[in-house]
Design a binder for these strands. Structure first.
Length: 259
DNA sequence: CCCTATGTTCCCAA
DNA sequence: CTTGGGAACATAGG
């Protein structure tokens, strides 16, 4: 269930672990995924991320991974045991990456062509421009949280951090995007920068089963201000946190101080 | 049995 | 064209 900070955590750990390493073997355990023999013998040149998508560039061919809801990647030295829900593994001379994904939504694709992630919009981790977002919100009447979760507008944004960002910015998730003021967009952008960077430093949020490449849980769950706190007292005012659906997603917010 | 789940896409209706 | 709702994908857990 990785969002941007979790995928960024994996990206950094993958870079330090498999950069320049040579692929020895690729195993596929799920018939939904397809094997591509051209990977064998190639070395990892570069690893990129755009939003929640990851690309392992082999200097020509590219491996593309999206973990969706329940996908996880783990590094291990030896590959004798195959844990339940293992979907694929990519073995190198010094160890292997395995993907474990109970719900089987994760995708693994190979391309012989160049990167598809290079031409993507600016990453919200390196900075969202509040004026540009304000312009893009234009006359759109959907709830601001729905806009935040749109991957074309906010690549990498996920449900937990969208709730946290709107809480910190004190903006109601129900506000129409076109009614959010320039000052509020600035507050949202500032909150996003602070929260996402802090979450990366914490190696993500482990509410249930998120673990990093080395099997360690993240720490950001201890810093959550609103997500998962339905019925509890708001940490900023005296109101009670509510949960309602926006776009089918559980949305936590404080009716007292998010206006 | 019911409901929920950190994601995304597609179809349909207003 | 926009938006919102529901289903689908597939599984585990409360």
């Amino acid at each position: 269930m990785p969002e941007l900070p979790e995928v960024e955590t994996l990206l950094r750990q993958l870079r330090q672990t498999i950069t320049s390493e040579k692929i020895c073997e690729v195993r596929i355990y799920d018939e939904k995924l397809v094997r591509f023999p051209e990977m064998i013998g190639r070395r990892v040149r570069e690893i990129r991320r755009a939003g929640k998508e990851v690309e392992i560039d082999l200097g020509g061919p590219v491996i593309h991974i999206h973990l969706r809801m329940s996908g996880r990647l783990f590094w291990r030295r030896s590959g004798d045991l195959i844990p339940p829900h293992t979907r694929f593994s990519i073995a190198f001379e010094n160890g292997e990456i395995i993907c474990i994904d109970p719900r089987r939504f994760a995708t693994l694709t190979f391309r012989s062509g160049p990167s598809v992630l290079r031409s993507r919009p600016v990453d919200i981790l390196t900075g969202m421009d509040p004026r540009e977002i304000c312009n893009r919100a234009g006359r759109r009447r959907l709830p601001v949280k729905a806009l935040l979760l749109d991957q074309r507008d906010m690549p990498g944004m996920g449900n937990i951090y969208a709730c946290e960002i709107l809480f910190e910015a004190a903006v109601s998730p129900w506000r129409r995007a076109c009614d959010v003021t320039a000052a509020e967009w600035e507050a949202i952008a500032a909150a996003a920068g602070r929260i996402l960077k802090e979450a990366v430093l914490c190696r993500g949020t482990s509410i249930s089963d998120w673990r990093d490449l080395f099997g360690r849980p993240g720490e950001y769950q201890r810093r959550l201000q609103v997500y998962g706190r339905e019925g509890k007292t708001c940490l900023r005012c005296a109101a009670r946190i509510e949960r309602r659906k926006i776009g089918g997603r559980g949305t936590y917010f404080c009716p007292g101080c998010q206006k």
